[in-house]
Write a protein that binds this DNA or RNA. Structure first.
Lengths: 121, 121
DNA sequence: TCAACACTTCAAGGATTATTGAATAATGGA
DNA sequence: TCCATTATTCAATAATCCTTGAAGTGTTGA
């Protein structure tokens, strides 16, 4: 993921409605949700939702397919994963504190003592 | 990290100059950099830089201290780590594909085969 | 105390982004 | 074909964000 894409992704996630859409679609899984269902859950008007969906689609964080009358949206797990990687590696220079903090959170990988004095600030 | 903070952080990172500042400060390490040095490196006017620094400070991604005439800024590794965690856990519901993709990237943890059919889309 | 330095704050503008309601497009069933 | 359904696009307005230059705030050394 290049910087342009990352900027667009951060911008997409910086708006309450859009962050909500992404969360909803992630939970919905690969089957996705029709625009109408999303609008209902989020409590926004169809045209407003459409505006935000376009923004998200443009950033690559979601994708769409037509299914009969509906247009069904799905979260792009790949793009989300790329964004997490960008944040950790490109933006944060793979800093040990950040990596460790994330890995620690699911009890995986290196024990905390192994981090040594890499954990500043 | 709650949603409000996450939105503020994404908003902070969605602007080219500010993303550049964060990257610069992460690389600079815990000693940080004076506002003047940052302005010079980023090629922006002092007042414009100040505007963006305030934005970043407000989101919690950086912090500041006065040191003689200068005001020295440092990246908040903690806030950055929290943001990565938010993205993976709250926003992405700890989705296995995203987690795996990140962990895979440093050759740590579970081998790819172990992911099984958790890797959809 | 005064001047120079390092920054920030303020006010004004221009540029983007968000919201709303009306109009338009695509699909499927009677 | 005609109508209802599902969604998008458009135009206008409101709100927010970014940039700039001038003015203001601390800090240091003469």
């Amino acid at each position: 993921m290049d910087e342009r894409q990352a900027l667009a992704s951060f911008s997409a996630l910086s708006q309450e409605t859009r962050l909500g859409i992404v969360r909803t679609l992630v939970v919905a899984g690969p089957e996705g949700l029709a625009a109408g269902s999303i609008a209902e859950r989020m409590g926004v008007s169809p045209s407003n939702l459409s505006f935000h969906l376009k923004e998200l689609d443009h950033s690559g964080l979601i994708s769409q397919r037509r299914e009969s009358r509906s247009i069904v949206y799905t979260a792009s797990y790949n793009a989300l994963a790329e964004l997490v990687k960008f944040l950790m590696e490109d933006c944060c220079s793979g800093h040990p504190v950040i990596r460790a903090s994330v890995e620690r959170s699911d009890g995986c990988c290196a024990p905390q003592e192994a981090l040594g004095d890499a954990t500043f600030a």
